[in-house]
């Protein structure tokens, strides 16, 4: 009981993942700034932002539905933190593993997007509504290639459980090379999920103010920002666990450090991508996803099916 509470609230649950998420946001912003020839924020920046938002006034617009408006961010945060309990962190074993948990992880990562939609919709502001509709439109575009490419890797490992996938790829490290296309696709799809630059259409600040978050202030905004930070960490951790889960067989501490370094590497790739590209229009984004990413993901799936025939 106490052990379960400890793992939910402190490590690797709420506390650890929040601090790590805030640090990851700083890391992302710093790389973004350095690539633009700027100095960038100091290391405590994201923590200061978070504390400041917690201490600010909470405004609930009188037009908004207060219950949905207040609950949506909490749902989003809870679901992304839950995901972290299913990701192997320091050994090839998770706290609560079962066969099929990779599906659950993928669906739990969808919940924040839906929560943003609900929060934006019920805040009854014009900008928030446009933003939240774009959020969901975008969801239909990136979700399919993301699922396909991650499940293609799972297919090669012949299991729906993250632990088994990790064990399979640590045993056969070279098989990771077959999944390179899948890794690229899921990296791009993850940018869409995190609403980062080429796909930051839902919160395009030059067109629709701040999208679904337009009416949020104070504590609720802090929760929403934390959700996106944690989503970034969790999404990167999922990609690492599925596509190159090396180092987890080492001693607990080294394994943990190596795994964290790999997560940071994926986050650095995400920042690099978001620096070098500009925002697309929503129709261009949907076209891009369905015309190029989905066929590539199908190709990856067929490739893995054939490989499975040949190799096993």
């Amino acid at each position: 009981m106490i052990k379960a509470l400890f793992s939910i609230l402190i490590f690797p649950g709420f506390l650890f993942v929040s601090v790590f998420g805030l640090f990851a946001e700083f890391f992302d912003r710093k790389i973004y700034a350095r690539l633009q020839n700027r100095v960038g924020p100091p290391w405590f920046q994201t923590f200061a932002d978070f504390i400041k938002l917690l201490a600010k006034e909470d405004i609930v617009p009188c037009e908004a539905n207060p219950r949905m408006f207040g609950l949506a961010p909490i749902f989003a945060l809870a679901s992304v933190i839950t995901v972290f309990l299913y990701i192997p962190l320091w050994k090839t074993e998770t706290l609560f593993s079962f066969n099929g948990d990779i599906i659950m992880v993928l669906y739990l990562l969808t919940v924040p997007t839906l929560a943003f939609f609900i929060g934006g919709w019920y805040s009854t502001s014009l900008f928030a509504r446009i933003g939240s509709v774009r959020c969901v439109t975008q969801l239909f575009a990136y979700e399919v290639p993301l699922f396909m490419s991650i499940l293609a890797a799972a297919l090669l490992a012949n299991s729906w459980s993250l632990v088994d996938i990790v064990i399979f790829y640590t045993r056969h490290p070279l098989y990771c090379l077959f999944n390179l296309i899948g890794f690229g696709i899921s990296l791009i799809a993850l940018l869409g999920k995190l609403e980062k630059t080429p796909f930051d259409i839902p919160e395009a600040e030059t067109e629709i103010v701040a999208g679904a978050f337009t009416e949020y202030s104070g504590r609720l905004l802090a929760i929403l920002r934390l959700t996106i930070d944690i989503e970034m960490v969790v999404g990167s951790a999922l990609l690492v666990a599925v596509f190159f889960p090396f180092g987890l067989t080492l001693a607990p501490i080294t394994g943990f450090v190596v795994f964290m370094a790999e997560i940071m590497f994926v986050i650095a790739l995400l920042s690099l991508l978001r620096t070098v590209v500009a925002r697309l229009r929503i129709d261009q984004m949907i076209n891009f996803c369905w015309k190029y990413m989905v066929p590539l993901a199908i190709f990856q799936l067929l490739l893995n099916l054939t490989l499975k025939r040949i190799l096993m």
């Binding site: 100095v39 960038g40 924020p41 100091p42 600010k56 103010v209 701040a210 337009t214 009416e215």
Partner: peptide
């Protein structure tokens, strides 16, 4: 702009009054 880089001091330009200080 990057010339003065106010993000060094944590300054960010926000689009909505709800987020601004």
């Amino acid at each position: 702009t990057p010339r003065y880089d106010l993000e060094r001091f944590g300054v960010q330009l926000k689009g909505t009054p709800r987020h601004a200080d």
